[in-house]
Design a protein around this nucleic acid. Structure first.
Lengths: 260, 260
DNA sequence: ATGCCTTTGTGAACGCGTGCACAAAGATGG
DNA sequence: CCATCTTTGTGCACGCGTTCACAAAGGCAT
């Protein structure tokens, strides 16, 4: 996952657990694909496989929404698409603004996945005067000075921040002051926002770092396995804590198992 | 969170809980900022605030790595930066390839957050012959035909998929066959991969959908509050389950509380 | 109508993650 | 050297999320 709830520890909103809410878009995507292939019904087992989750979990998730299945048959695809869409609030139009039209902001503006889900890019905003008026994804970029007016004129409640880290906090404050109550933050910073404002963050480098951790672990295991196979003595797991003898400076101790 | 573990349900790798691993990059970022300001030590309370987490949680997270703090003082910033970097495997060089150089792929190639964390973009790969040779972020794009050779020549273990959804599964299979064991997937599809391969996914539209859910809920609550204030009768929470009387078709029932 | 077969919906148990609260540890000042 | 004060490290309890396993429910064939 590239994101993590920043706020709202795990409040189950209206009885639907947060974890379930996070999976609904996944189900919706799988169901939409089935719908396009004109599949009338689907069992929890099939849909779970398509969404990459456990079937029991899927059934429990749906049970929070209501009894939308038919025993012995499964779920009506079209009906479920509608119910989930409605639950997620996708049956209405959500105007969003993207602030920070650099490489990432431009990519987001061009991203097709938004429009198809009821999200409409109402405006692109950038602090660079040179960008003003220049069309990106068919939408002219507007200057930060007009941020407040753009937000209120378009009734925007959802903002996307794709600015450099240094500008993110200030941008978020202006967005919030202008009426935005949900923020998707791509800037690598922790935003501090008042209660009632939801922030979700996507940090590309964090995801890679988590992968690197597991990758390193795999390499270590592999090395250990090879060593074991060749009869070599494997270095014991590094003694942490008291063993950090020298202390101080990036050379305190050396990884016991160094991947190739 | 924009991502979610696809594989490895919650295996605590080498005793470090998955949830903790996911937070380490957050701590690292905060510590790096402190380091640049030449702050020598930091308390769990301060660092927790900077990282946006609870201080008890932070201390417990660090306790999994070892006893790196000094009671009464706090943590040595430089030392902690090194320890976390080492734990995450960032002290070594990680060559990565990006497959699919569209808007998003190009943005990723230009993203500065990778290089500063030990990730080196070893190659850009795209299926469009017209892209071949064209430099993006100073790196010439190579054709998909050479994917296998590129992976093995550069010893790449981490791949980033930024292709359209339709191509993602096949690309992942080729990456894995060529030696990749960790994939960061931006394509809106569930990848099915063999055991031992880690996949993390980032889905931009999923994040927005989760925000929309909460946004809709806020709007509903607000409407209810206004109604209560003006003495209006508020519609009861929709009876789910058996109340879905009519059934069938995208008009089964209507949201009891409709946001403006 | 009746019985069989499939699939849902959920009760219950379990495990992970979180947060409190405090004892142990070390620094610091006298 | 001792007392005090700060901050870590962690035992414990609680709650959410996941999974199992099964009874209830509905379709379908006979």
């Amino acid at each position: 996952m590239a994101t993590g709830r920043t706020h709202r520890p795990a409040t189950r909103s209206r009885g639907i657990p947060e974890a379930t809410v996070a999976r609904l878009p996944l189900y919706l995507r799988a169901l939409t694909a089935l719908s396009e292939r004109s599949v009338p019904t689907v069992s929890s087992e099939e849909l779970a496989a398509a969404a990459g989750v456990n079937s029991a979990k899927l059934r429990k998730d749906f049970s929070y929404l209501g009894s939308y299945g038919t025993r012995g048959v499964g779920y009506d695809v079209e009906y479920l698409v509608y119910q989930i869409s409605r639950e997620l609030g996708l049956t209405q139009d959500w105007p969003v603004v993207i602030v920070g039209i650099g490489n990432l902001g431009a990519a987001l503006a061009n991203y097709g996945g938004f429009a198809s889900r009821g999200f409409r890019v109402a405006a692109l905003i950038d602090a660079d005067p040179a960008m003003a008026g220049k069309p990106v994804a068919g939408i002219p970029v507007q200057h930060t000075d007009d941020l407040e007016k753009i937000i209120s004129d378009n009734g925007v409640h959802i903002g996307v921040i794709a600015t450099p880290a240094g500008a993110a906090q200030q941008v978020s404050e202006r967005l919030i002051a202008a009426g935005v109550t949900s923020i998707l933050n791509f800037a690598p910073t922790v935003l501090s926002v008042p209660d009632g404002v939801d922030v979700r963050k996507v940090d590309l480098s964090i995801e890679l770092q988590i992968l690197a951790f597991h990758e390193q672990r795999k390499a270590g295991e592999e090395a250990a396995a090879v060593a074991a196979a060749t009869g070599d003595v494997v270095a014991p797991p590094p003694l942490r804590g008291s063993a950090a003898a020298s202390r101080k400076g990036p050379d305190g101790d050396v990884p016991a198992v160094m991947p190739a």
